[in-house]
Amino acid sequence: MDGRITDLGGGYTARRIPLETYRDACARLEGRIFGGNSVYAFGRAARPPVPLGETFTWGLFAGDELVGWSHAEQRDERTVDMADTGLLPEHQGRGLYTRLLPTLLGTFRAAGYALVTSRHRATNNAVLVPKLRAGFFIQGLNLYEGGLNVTLALALDGPYRDAMHARSGFRAATAEAARRLRWPEAVPPGPVPVPSALPLPPGTGPDLDLGGGYVLRPVEYETYWHLYAVLEAAAYESVSLEWPHPAERADLDAPSYTWLIGHAGEVVGWQYSRQWNARTAYMVNTALLPAHRGAGVYSRLLPAVLEALRTEGYDLVRSHHHATNAAVLVPKLRAGFRVQGLEVSDHGVMAVLLFSYGELYREYMDVRSGLTLPRGEVARRLGMAGDTGT
């Protein structure tokens, strides 16, 4: 057993522990950690467990006290699965999981694995966010005995990551990724010239200061659409299906909400939302030109758009994003959106996200995912005579 100690800061450390120590800790502590989750009780298993392959188990310590763990198991000749991570509630919310991840992934890479997988309840953003930031991609959803799970996968080699981007439609397949997919290689596009001097046009209301010299300006739909048509090619690398004919039906005449993002008096991006149904708004399209990414503008824009849609009377906001586009998925989840599904559209494989303004519906989503037990008002709204207590 590797005796090296990883300092996680704040008095916390991690080190490899025997499988038996992990199992003993589960027996003693999992009720305190996972007692609020909903898991179907199968009863006694009829078959013996599948033999374990290689295992990797760490204990998390506060001083000398074991306060959590991370356990991973070999799934096949290429894949290791991060099967179980637990941390006592009083030690959560301190960034320990994020700080431990590089050590775990480095160990898996050194052991020769190509893929790392994990599964988490679909509304457990506290774990999904650090995983996506570490390079994991959403691979699917499944309904199992514990609720609704999101399956994540991390590629430890570059070509597989590139292939997943191509699968989702986020980027074109080129070079080694195209060869391994047995796809014709996409012709690498040349740099798209950004039209110069596109002045920020007059708005329909006051600007909102986004900081760093950026503003969000409400505009008429026609103004947005004209600038979108001019700048679209410069804003996106994604690959969408090119329809062979124009749509034969008129688009729905739903209320729409459009903004331009300005910097130094020029247009550098946009946001377009519209009504989805009587309760739901749909954030259709947000983009920043490449030179203005990575400055946190999207994260600062989100609260303003959500507040504007709330004042229009919506209960929910949905959005669709390429499943491998962590640069957008992470700020959306941090803002309170939840993963609700995957769909294949003409833009590719898209993750469906949903945001609720009301606490009741947020609690409802946690119940559906199995992250929490039905209690109080949620239980009553679901027609349950009692609940699991408070």
Rank of each mutant, 00 (worst) to 15 (best):
G389M: 14
P89L: 02
G43F: 08
T372D: 12
L309I: 04
L29C: 05
P374S: 11
A153L: 13
G106Q: 15
L156N: 14
E20H: 06
G135N: 15
H245L: 11
L200T: 01
A291G: 12
N142D: 13
D157V: 06
M384G: 10
A327N: 05
E65P: 02
Y22A: 05
V367A: 07
D387F: 07
R167F: 10
F108V: 13
Y314E: 14
R249V: 11
V80R: 06
V67S: 02
A295N: 13
Y40W: 15
W276I: 03
L354F: 14
Y236D: 07
A72P: 05
G205L: 05
G336H: 06
P201R: 09
N325P: 00
V150G: 10
E65Q: 06
M82T: 13
T372F: 08
A114W: 14
L231C: 09
L132C: 04
L101K: 04
I261T: 02
G147R: 12
G370T: 14
P244Q: 01
S319Q: 00
Q74Y: 03
E343H: 07
R121H: 12
L101I: 07
G341Q: 06
G205R: 04
Y97V: 07
G112V: 15
L60D: 06
Y236R: 04
T223C: 07
N285C: 13
V129A: 06
R133N: 06
G169C: 03
L181R: 05
R94M: 05
A177W: 11
H165M: 11
L200K: 13
L302E: 07
V339T: 04
L329G: 01
D251L: 01
F170H: 06
R99Q: 08
D64H: 10
W270A: 11
V187L: 10
Y97M: 08
P188N: 08
L100G: 09
A177F: 09
K332Q: 12
Y282K: 07
V367I: 13
G9C: 12
Q139S: 12
H263K: 04
D2V: 15
L354P: 11
F56H: 08
D76H: 05
T258H: 11
R78F: 14
T57Q: 03
A278V: 15
V267S: 05
G158L: 13
E54Q: 15
A327D: 10
G205C: 05
